[in-house]
Simulated assay, not measured.
Amino acid sequence: MRSLGNIRRSFAPWSDPNAKAMISIRNVTKRFGDFTAVDNLSLDIYEREFFALLGASGCGKSTLLRMLAGFETPNEGAILLDGVDLTGVPPYRRPLNMMFQSYALFPHMTVADNVGFGLKQEKMAKPAIAERVAQMLKLVKMSEFAGRKPHQLSGGQRQRVALARALAKQPKVLLLDEPLGALDKKLREETQFELTDLQYDLGLTFVVVTHDQEEAMTMADRIAVMDAGQIRQVATPAEVYEAPNSRFVADFIGSINLFDGEVTRSDAALTKLQSPEGFALRMVDGQSRSIGSRLTLGLRPEKIAVTHTKPDSGVNAVEGEVWDLAYLGDMSIFHVKLDSGKIIKASVVNASRSGSEVFTYHDRVWLSFAEDAGVVLER
């Protein structure tokens, strides 16, 4: 089956019915008083997978990560690692490690001592500790900073030290709680790719918690979109973006235009909707719909063309007025107000320095899109 979007590597154990999950979360519920943080949640994560738990603040993603680490205990359900139930196993006995958002480095220790702290606690021999610390610092390109204290490092350097310390004990699973939140935008983008390369080279399983959609889509093999303690969709980044399973996921991941409409024609190849805005929408659907039923078409801004003149085909085209616009260098963002009052967002890549068409406020423009550009959302 052809994948949606580009893929970083040919790795998809979740599509193999015979593959065994490394981490199996079974009907887990966690309550804090009357508040249910995680609600009857089940999830499988596979060995060597880079998995992201994505959601807004308070959705339960950090609570789930803390239960994996052993810092919280489920009220119901079980968490298994390689088939072994982790119930009652303390954090320091679990073959995993956690990297916190704050990094939690010891300010009075050198970089080398921070990285080797966990190994010292396990009473590893000093020569072995020194060798492992050297390996980890080389891995994260921090060897020359071994003798410095945390306050003598930049935010990005402290992040690397925390990562080296988390990896020093060679865990089966590395848990990362908003690991890049303290970094500036440019450094965060660079570190995202470094983390994915490192995870691939080490062959470890990474589970990251983040509220940053771009971060999750850049790093993860699969994403679990969470809301109110439940998982709304688990899929690859491209599938979550291009084929969301609900209005919630479609609206949460990226930007999207939603068109509600009534089915006026439908067969296995094409569905036609009449929108309240007064124009018809034709879309490739893949299944027959009942005439008169109501559906929602989700349409990403980059799928929409913006022109001064009406497209020759006239299909999926509607006229409006440029209500707002922004030039971002690599692309231009348009907010176009239809005659009905509905605002449509479109984005156009600035492929040419001069641009083939120039738009300004209050221009009358045409928006159009292909029949297979949108996704049908039933819930």
Rank of each mutant, 00 (worst) to 15 (best):
M136Y: 09
D177W: 13
A134M: 00
E215Q: 10
A162H: 04
L204P: 00
V133N: 10
R158Y: 04
Q159L: 05
F145H: 05
Q159V: 05
R158I: 02
K141Q: 15
Q152M: 15
A134R: 15
L195N: 03
T210P: 05
R222H: 08
Q170A: 11
L174M: 09
F145I: 01
Q157C: 00
Q213S: 13
K123Q: 14
D177E: 15
R165A: 12
A130V: 03
Y200Q: 14
G203N: 07
G156A: 04
L187K: 07
R158V: 02
G155Y: 08
M142I: 08
K138P: 00
R165Y: 11
A216L: 06
A162K: 04
P171C: 06
P150A: 05
S154K: 01
E214N: 06
T210C: 07
P150C: 01
R132K: 15
D184L: 03
R165S: 11
L176H: 15
T218R: 12
Q157S: 03
F145C: 02
R188A: 05
V173R: 02
D177S: 14
H151N: 14
V207H: 05
L176G: 15
F193Y: 06
V173I: 02
H151S: 12
K172I: 00
A168D: 08
M219Y: 08
K138F: 01
R222W: 02
D197K: 12
S143R: 14
T210Y: 06
V173L: 00
A162E: 09
Y200I: 00
G156D: 07
L153S: 07
H151Y: 14
Q199M: 01
F145T: 06
D212H: 06
E178A: 11
R148Y: 04
A220I: 04
E178T: 14
V161Q: 06
K123D: 12
K185D: 02
M219I: 14
T205P: 03
V140D: 12
A162F: 01
D201Q: 12
F193Q: 07
M124L: 12
Q159M: 03
V161C: 07
T210K: 13
D212V: 01
Q157V: 00
M219G: 10
P179V: 13
D177H: 14
E190L: 02
F145R: 07
A128Q: 15
L198K: 02
T196H: 05
K141A: 15
L195H: 03
R158E: 09
E178P: 13
Q192V: 09
G181D: 06
L183R: 07
G155K: 11
